[in-house]
Design a protein around this nucleic acid. Structure first.
Length: 577
RNA sequence: CGGGGCGUAGCGCAGCCUGGUAGCGCACCUGGUUCGGGACCAGGGAGUCGGAGGUUCAAAUCCUCUCGCCCCGACCA
């Protein structure tokens, strides 16, 4: 492509509403433009990247034996009503009516629709295993679109669905997808972690997220420094704490006046006791029941684990008025001693002896509190993992792994769904004894458009984008300096040779000063830059510099006669690496 | 949904408090000089001041309503 013929509207200043590096760079480099909140135009370069990612995903999905289909984005309400998700999805669903008042919505995901295909077309055990996927726009009315392409209301997703005769067979399909995803993320040049995750609203038993590591990521994950345990902090577990220290003599319980000091921080300072000696008491609403959750003063509650311990879908922090009703005290003075409702206590908090806790009386705390004597509750693992915690997995095997925290962007998510959808929608097959069985399903998503931004979050510097070869919109950025005829002739010849060799090349043939061209080249981020200038060319050379080399003086001199061959080789080598 | 902020030229912003000719930088167009890391000089075009209503002789500016957008939180395959 000739730069003078291309629509590449670079700008010096990023729009004020861009917060992430990827958002700023995509706009500045002319890859995307905003149409509305969470809606973007893909300009020519942006679309090329999107298509390149799509191609990698499609190749690997096909290689795994999956078959591509395309389902509608516009859907009648009846399918989601069959499984109850018409109501469950709530405000996230984009709903609309047709001219006759019929109810429709835009697909946020397609389990129901693909299950409908399955129940009609998959009739025998001989029809499985099978895996159907599509690459399609998804629609979700997100509470808050943000981060440019990272969280959109319309976004491109690859969603795949596996159909198997049994849970074991489904596990094999799941494993195939796990390996396929690893190949995809590797080819895209991303550094990622496979982490255990909460299946959330999709449902299902086994699930794992492909978290692309980036400081700007929305998700917090923990990974063991010794074994391969990694999990979203939402569900991460930690090594059980040592049992109560029996050597510590039991104190008597005493009530102390703590006027206007309710937070752990303040009471700790006021009473000069470490936070580890506190029982942090939080009132949660679980269904209709008010429950007291107890964690150690220096820990935080993991609400997803708490909900699981209680056997409910989710829990909510109780409103201040409810807290006062339940404890008889102002917020900040709740405690388990004398609490009338259900109490759930984290393992670490359960082990604290001579604890400090709220007295359920405004402006008062108890000290010297002991579990068993003064209060009790159901012990469970309900705290949030943090940096430095012991790893539960290798810790129990006697090793000393420590958890480290990372930020990640969810690039993919794989699930075993079981029979949730097939049973709700009557998707059954006949087994070899002519008996009807529910199909066992799995589903597998990759946020294709999100990966455009995610890649930049991981691959950029102060000057611009640094595309991995596999998805770069052009592999070679050819810069001709000045208007000397020998320079232009050499550039034209190289350009033609690269095009003939099938190498995607962008030739900056504009009548611009060198500085402008170099700045734009860095911003756009093509992996290889070739500069043809009069001085080097007089000696028969051109300059070759990878985008990852930031020092322009380290450009490599390559004889003009060899450069086409060298470039073709490097592009091929980088693609297969 | 709770808290905060912003809508003025394509982009980034000033002007608003204290009402009175709508400005600056970048980008764009013309001419000239310049030419290896976002040049310079001169000239030029471009804005229903998000929208509606109100107060006023007079509204970008004050008041009311409304729409959109961003940030933090909540929420979120």
């Amino acid at each position: 492509m000739l730069y003078t013929r291309a629509l590449i509207p670079t700008v010096k200043e990023a729009p004020a509403d861009a917060a992430n590096a990827s958002h700023k760079l995509l706009v500045r480099a002319g890859y995307i433009r905003k149409v509305g909140a969470g809606m973007y135009d893909y300009l020519p370069l942006g679309l090329r990247v999107l298509k390149n990612i799509e191609a990698v995903v499609r190749e690997e999905m096909n290689r795994s034996g999956a078959q591509e289909i395309l389902m509608p984005a516009l859907l009648p309400a009846e399918y989601f009503k069959e499984t109850g998700r018409w109501d469950l999805y709530g405000a996230t669903l984009f709903r609309l009516e047709d001219r006759k008042g019929g109810e429709f919505h835009l697909g946020p995901t397609h389990e129901e629709i693909v299950t409908d295909i399955a129940r009609r077309e998959i009739k025998s055990f001989r029809d499985m295993p099978t895996n159907l996927y599509q690459i399609q726009s998804k629609y979700r009315d997100e509470p808050r679109p943000r981060g440019g392409l990272l969280r959109c209301r319309e976004f491109l997703m690859k969603d795949a669905y596996s159909f198997d005769v049994s849970e074991d067979a489904a596990k094999a399909s799941y494993e195939t997808m796990r390996q396929t995803y690893c190949r995809i993320f590797d080819r895209l040049g991303l550094t990622y972690r496979l982490v255990a995750a909460d299946p959330g609203a999709i449902g299902g038993s086994t699930s794992a997220e492909f978290q692309v590591l980036a400081d700007s990521g929305e998700d917090a994950i923990v990974a063991c420094d010794t074994c391969d345990y990694a999990a979203n902090v939402e569900i991460a577990t930690v090594k059980a704490p040592p049992a109560t220290d029996e050597a510590e003599a039991a104190e008597d319980k005493a009530k102390v006046h703590t006027p206007k000091v309710g937070s752990i921080e303040d009471v700790s300072r006021f009473l000069k006791k470490p936070k580890e000696k506190f029982l942090k008491s939080l009132v949660y609403l679980a269904g209709k029941e008010l429950v007291l959750a107890i964690v150690r003063g220096d820990h935080d509650v993991n609400e997803i684990r708490l909900a699981r311990a209680l056997g409910v879908d989710e829990v909510f922090m109780a409103a201040d008025a409810d807290v006062q009703k339940a404890t008889g005290a102002a917020v900040g003075f709740a405690g388990p001693v004398g609490f009338k409702g259900k109490v759930v206590v984290d393992r670490a908090a359960a082990a604290v002896k001579n604890a400090v806790t709220g007295a359920n009386e405004t402006d008062h705390h108890f000290t010297g509190v002991s579990r068993g004597r003064d209060w009790d509750g159901d012990v469970a693992d309900i705290r949030l993992a943090t940096d430095g915690d012991g790893c539960a997995v290798c810790g129990e095997a006697g090793r000393e792994g420590k958890l480290k925290t990372y930020r990640g962007i969810e690039g993919g998510h794989i699930f075993i769904l079981g029979t949730k959808y097939s049973e709700a929608m009557g998707a059954t097959y006949s087994d070899d004894k002519m008996e009807k069985q529910p199909i066992v399903m799995g589903c597998y998503g990759i946020g294709v458009s999100r990966l455009v931004a995610t890649t930049i979050e991981q691959h950029h510097d102060a000057d611009g984008i640094r595309w991995p070869m596999s998805i770069a919109p052009y592999k070679v950025h050819l810069v001709s300096i000045g208007k000397d005829e020998p320079v232009l002739a050499a550039a034209r010849k190289l350009y033609d040779e690269l095009v003939a060799a099938g190498v995607d090349v962008l030739w900056d043939d504009r009548d611009e000063r060198p500085g402008v061209k170099f700045k734009d080249a860095d911003l756009l981020g093509m992996p290889l830059r070739v500069t043809i200038g009069a001085k080097a060319l007089a000696n028969g050379n051109v300059e070759l510099k990878p985008r990852t080399e930031s020092d322009p003086k380290k450009a490599e001199l390559v004889p003009v006669a060899d450069v086409a061959r060298v470039l073709v080789e490097r592009v091929r080598a980088a693609k297969t690496a």
